[in-house]
Structures are given as C-alpha cells and as structure tokens.
Amino acid sequence: MEETIAGPQAAHIPKRRGDSIAEAAVRYVEERHWDVFPGTWLEARDGTLRCSCGESACPAPGAHPAREDWATQATGSATVARGLWSEHPTASILLPVGRTFDAIDVPETAGLLALARMERMELRLGPVTHAPDGRMQFFVLPGAAAKVPDLLRGLGWSPATLDLVALGEGTYVAAPPTRYGLRGPVQWACRPTSENRWLPDAEELISTLAYACGRDR
C-alpha cells in the first residue's frame, strides 16, 4: 500500500493498495523512469524491530543504503530491480538523486505550509515525499543543488540561516512504502501522477519554500 498524508491535495491523490515493496520499486522504474536500489530492511530481534545494519542506535532503521557502493547498484532496469528485491523482499526503496531529479528537503511544518500556499498559487508541483523523520522532499529538475544557494541569496536569504537543503548527485531519498523503524512509512504528500511527470524547476518553488522555512525558524 502507498499512503498519502492529509493535506491540500489529499482529495486528488489516489491510493494504490496491494503492492509489495518490489512491485512498487518496479513501478517507479517503469512508470517514472527513476533509478532504484534496495537499502536496509527491518528485522525482528528479541521482540523488537531493528535495522538489518545491526546498529542498535541506527538513526534511520530500515531506510538507508545497505552498502557503500549503492550508487553503482542503482538500476533503471525493471528486470534487475526484480532480481535485487528477490534477495531481500522487504528492503527499503531508495532513489538516487541527481539523475532524473534533484530534491529540496525541508522540515514538515515548512513543507506543509508551502504546499498550502503553492496550491493557492496554482504552482505546478512534482512528487513530494513526507518521511516520518519530520522531513519533506520536493522533487525538481536536476541541477537544483548547484543553483539553490544563489537563488536564496537573490531572494535576500542567507542559505545558512534556513533549514532548507538542496539534494543532488551523491544523495538519495527514501520512497513509499519504505518504513522508518517503528515511526511508520514514508508517504506521498503529492504522489507521482501523469499530471506531474514534468518536474518544476527549483526556481519556480524556491521563493515559497524559503518563505515557509523562514516562518518555521
């Protein structure tokens, strides 16, 4: 099942039930042409769910890369993806950033405020994830990581003063239905649809996101 949060677009976001994690990963490859790779997974140990990495204090249990060379493991082949998840069917779904999209990462309070303002402004949005660690990621065209700092300065913001991070090559995001330990699953605030196949440029969203993050300080 892919879940969506209650928010300004919730009424327009369909839910898809019955998918396994592997099926969801394959759909991201086939329908969005996103590269995917399996991360860690959750294991029951002594009656408690723990991360497969073995770290008792893992900050993102079940939702981070399982190997250091994850970037070379990421695939855009549905056949390869099926094979990868056949080894560990409950492994998290991670998406490498900087290939078909970059992402702007903000706190959930700022992200929800920005979503409400963007809907009123009728801005074109791409997919947006909402993770149970209290962060949201707005998918934008590749190249955002390089230009967001200058865009913020041009708006009169110091990048160091805002809790706003542009994610680019060498980073990753977790995709639904990945779970963060007992905190629950990653959800779509704006799920991938045919209407948002074309991603916005960071410049289209940065003013609203910066304003929301400034309010959130």
Rank of each mutant, 00 (worst) to 15 (best):
L49S: 03
V173Y: 06
A66R: 14
T100S: 15
M118I: 04
R217P: 00
R179H: 13
D133A: 05
T161M: 11
V97M: 12
G143H: 06
I21A: 02
A60R: 15
A160L: 14
A25S: 06
P38A: 06
L49N: 08
A71K: 12
E119Y: 13
L113W: 14
L49T: 04
A78I: 03
D163I: 03
A22F: 02
I93K: 03
A202R: 08
R50Y: 00
S20V: 01
V29I: 14
D150Y: 13
G214H: 14
P200L: 12
E43H: 01
G154H: 05
A22N: 04
P38L: 04
H33I: 14
L182F: 02
T72A: 15
L115I: 10
L209I: 02
V26C: 01
G126R: 04
V165K: 15
R82D: 03
R67Q: 15
R124L: 09
E203R: 12
V165W: 10
D69T: 10
V29T: 01
M121T: 01
A60Q: 13
G168C: 06
L155T: 04
P132R: 04
S158R: 11
L155G: 08
D163F: 10
A146F: 10
T75H: 09
K147T: 15
A212L: 04
V26S: 00
Y172F: 15
E31M: 14
S158V: 06
A25G: 01
G83P: 08
A81Q: 03
T48M: 14
W34R: 01
A114N: 07
G18K: 06
A160K: 15
P142E: 05
L152A: 05
D46T: 01
L49P: 02
P127R: 00
E119M: 12
G154E: 13
R27M: 10
E55P: 01
S92G: 15
I104Y: 00
S20R: 04
D19M: 05
S77I: 04
P59I: 08
E119W: 15
V165E: 11
A81S: 05
R117F: 09
P65K: 02
E68V: 07
A202Q: 05
V36S: 07
P200Y: 06
